[in-house]
């Protein structure tokens, strides 16, 4: 099953920057894909198109077989509930505890309290932070904060997890820990797409690598390395 499919997708921003040019790509269910390329090559734009944070200029995007191009704005929340998102800057809420931060993702989509408690505990165990449940983000290391943000993205068990340079702010050893968690999430059937320009990580994982350059796919390799 095709989880993510781009057909002739072009994205030109309002200021005429062509961020993506005629992209064709299929990501199948359960795949782990690295999206690599230098800064400005269009990686973040690729991810923003999937969650409809920005709209494509041309072409069509299919998520789990559904064309999301003409999705009504009232249907966008439903789409996003099925796609977890992790970012370089964590986006944790500083005045909420770890538990509350993760629970927040379920609260705002209207999950009942008892369900929230169970799911939050489970996912915090998955990322190895169950003992930090009552801490606040500033009491955690950067790596731990990123694990909380992964927990929040995954707590609703979405079939797709997107990560935009999740290790961009982390040292190599901490990054390795993050990659272990993403691998684990991928192993239980989740499709993972990770944008990065971290050479070591890509080379050590030996997964599918899609390389962007100035908005175009210049390489799509099965068990790839970062290149040069």
């Amino acid at each position: 099953m095709n989880m993510i499919e781009f057909r002739n997708v072009t994205k030109i921003y309002e200021d005429n920057t062509a961020a993506l040019k005629n992209i064709n790509l299929i990501v199948r269910k359960g795949e782990f894909v690295f999206l690599v390329g230098p800064s400005g090559s269009g990686k973040s734009t690729f991810i923003k198109l999937i969650i409809k944070e920005v709209d494509e200029t041309d072409g069509s995007i299919f998520i789990a077989g559904r064309n999301i191009c003409n999705l009504r704005s009232s249907k966008i929340p439903q789409l996003r509930r099925n796609i977890g998102c992790v970012f370089q800057d964590f986006k944790l809420l500083p005045n909420k505890t770890i538990f509350e931060n993760v629970a927040f993702a379920l609260e705002v989509i209207g999950k009942p309290v008892y369900e929230i408690k169970i799911q939050v505990s489970q996912v915090l165990k998955l990322v190895g932070l169950y003992d930090k449940i009552d801490s606040y983000p500033h009491q955690l290391s950067a790596g731990e904060q990123q694990r909380v943000s992964i927990a929040r993205a995954f707590v609703n068990r979405p079939p797709i997890l997107l990560a935009d340079e999740p290790t961009g702010n982390l040292d190599p050893i901490t990054s390795e820990g993050i990659m272990k968690i993403l691998s684990r999430i991928n192993l239980i059937g989740t499709t993972v797409l990770m944008a990065t320009h971290d050479k070591n990580i890509v080379n050590s994982m030996r997964r599918r690598v899609v390389e962007l350059e100035e908005g175009e796919i210049v390489r799509d390799q099965k068990r790839g390395v970062y290149g040069d």
């Binding site: 996003r80 509930r81 705002v108 989509i109 609703n156």
Partner: peptide, 8 residues
């Protein structure tokens, strides 16, 4: 965050 996780 709300929009990201799909709050209406």
């Amino acid at each position: 965050v709300m929009k990201l996780v799909g709050a209406t």
